[in-house]
């Protein structure tokens, strides 16, 4: 692989981490969804580039799925949900943005140390991709942990899934069947969570998941 090809792959994967950070930073729901769309778009680009570099046409399908579902359909659907439900558009964080970002930096450092230490023999691109993918995954989890709003938790979950896809494409691609099934599972998860959202909303007039805890008597 030429160094330019490598650099572009590196650039795209790094941008994905950056997009994850942008999601951590957002405190408005719509902005969060837009950044998520960007996240998915970058993922699609990254996968497409891998497809080109690795001469693996089936990855183009993956990229297309990412683009169509994750970058367009899901954000649009979530936008509609928010509008229809009249969800409060500010995201309530459990801890401050600064601390969350610091934690994020720590997680990225951690994933780099882990990945670079356990894969000394692997090919450079795969190593780097894996390190980035693990970061995206951990950042997704961090988003889910630090947000109270159910919609942002959904978004966190889906960005986590993007990290998985990145990891899989970096490791010389995964079979299309697996990819499609993953995509469908995400779709199903999305539908389930969507219904779940409606239900919480119906019952509690809010999508703050704290309401659930309060309902079960588990608050503090």
């Amino acid at each position: 692989m030429s160094s330019l090809q490598f650099d572009i792959a590196h650039l795209l994967a790094g941008s994905l981490v950056l997009a994850s950070f942008m999601m951590l930073y957002q405190d408005r729901l719509y902005a969060l969804l837009n950044v998520y769309a960007l996240h998915a778009g970058v993922l699609a680009l990254s996968v497409a580039w891998q497809a080109y570099v690795q001469h693996a046409p089936h990855l183009y399908v993956t990229a297309l799925i990412a683009l169509v579902f994750k970058a367009i359909i899901i954000p649009v659907a979530l936008h509609r949900i928010i509008r229809q439900l009249g969800i409060h558009r500010e995201i309530e964080n459990v801890i401050g943005v600064g601390l969350t970002m610091m934690a994020g930096i720590g997680l990225v450092a951690l994933s780099m140390v882990v990945m670079l230490r356990v894969t000394p023999g692997a090919d450079a691109l795969a190593r780097e991709d894996l390190a980035f993918a693990l970061s995206v995954l951990l950042l997704g989890l961090l988003i889910m942990v630090t947000r109270r709003n159910a919609v942002s938790q959904v978004v966190g979950f889906m960005s986590l899934e993007n990290g998985l896809v990145l990891a899989a494409t970096g490791a010389k691609g995964m079979p299309l069947v697996v990819e499609i099934s993953v995509a469908f599972s995400v779709l199903i998860a999305f539908i389930v969570i969507g219904i779940f959202l409606f239900r919480i909303r119906e019952r509690f007039d809010s999508v703050d998941v704290q309401e659930l805890d309060r309902f079960r008597g588990e608050r503090r």
């Binding site: 950056l18 950070f21 994020g104 930096i105 990225v108 450092a109 780099m112």
Partner: peptide, 25 residues
């Protein structure tokens, strides 16, 4: 403003970290 500048701080730290990754390959 602190959040805005904090984002710059984080970006810079992240850049340094990423530099280690690509520097080590």
């Amino acid at each position: 403003i602190p959040e805005f500048l904090g984002a710059a701080l984080m970006l810079a730290l992240l850049a340094t970290l990423l530099r280690f990754v690509s520097g080590s390959l």
